[in-house]
Amino acid sequence: MIELDNVGYSYGRGGALLSDITLRLAPGSFHFLTGPSGAGKTTLLKLCYLELHPTVGRVHLYGVDGTRMTRDDVARTRQSIGVVHQDCRFLDHLSVAENIALPLTVSSRPVPGQDLHDLLHWVGLRNQAGQLPPELSGGERQRAALARAVMTDPQIIIADEPTGNIDWEMSLKLLGLLVELNRMGKTVMIATHDLALIRAAKSQVATRVLRIQAGRLTLAGADL
């Protein structure tokens, strides 16, 4: 589904942040991406959903070379990958429900009321549907972001620090939603440095843990 071949990346004229990264995400797999802060986790995820283009190597998405895509192709691709961003940005003048429906709205597709209702129920935000995003708590924002990410029913879900600043109980709840998506057949990739979360996931699904260190990607040992 997502393939990276000998990918390298550097911001501006600085040295290479990532180099020689080869990665294959098989359909239905569950991956964790970990590593120290500033190692390049977010950068690697951005390469995966084509927000950044590699300085070296190639990224294939659903079998298509990312560098050959037009801007419109990339926009379409965004709708087939659900992304929960590290800073979960919303349109603050629209309600939570409208924000969750946004991926459909911007592609001029109708928003099925029942689906939206079910989704809000699934992430436990039924009572917050009419609120504005700035009125949500950190955990509620993360769940709203997840709901938005799956609104278009994508095959791949990418989550960048989804449990960044929420308590353990809420983290487990969110992990539960992601595991549920994986059981439905979705490919899931989560960046986190919360090792406890990774252990909690391992007890529920088969996962692979990738670690970025000094610009290289390695498979983490079984100690996790």
């Binding site: 927000e51 801007r71 419109d72 926009a75 379409r76 691709t77 965004r78 709708q79 992304v83 961003h85 940005r89 919303f90 349109l91 946004l102 991926p103 911007v106 592609s107 938005r148 278009t152």
Partner: peptide, 9 residues
Amino acid sequence: VLRLVGARD
């Protein structure tokens, strides 16, 4: 934000 959710130009 619109770009992130896949809005075309």
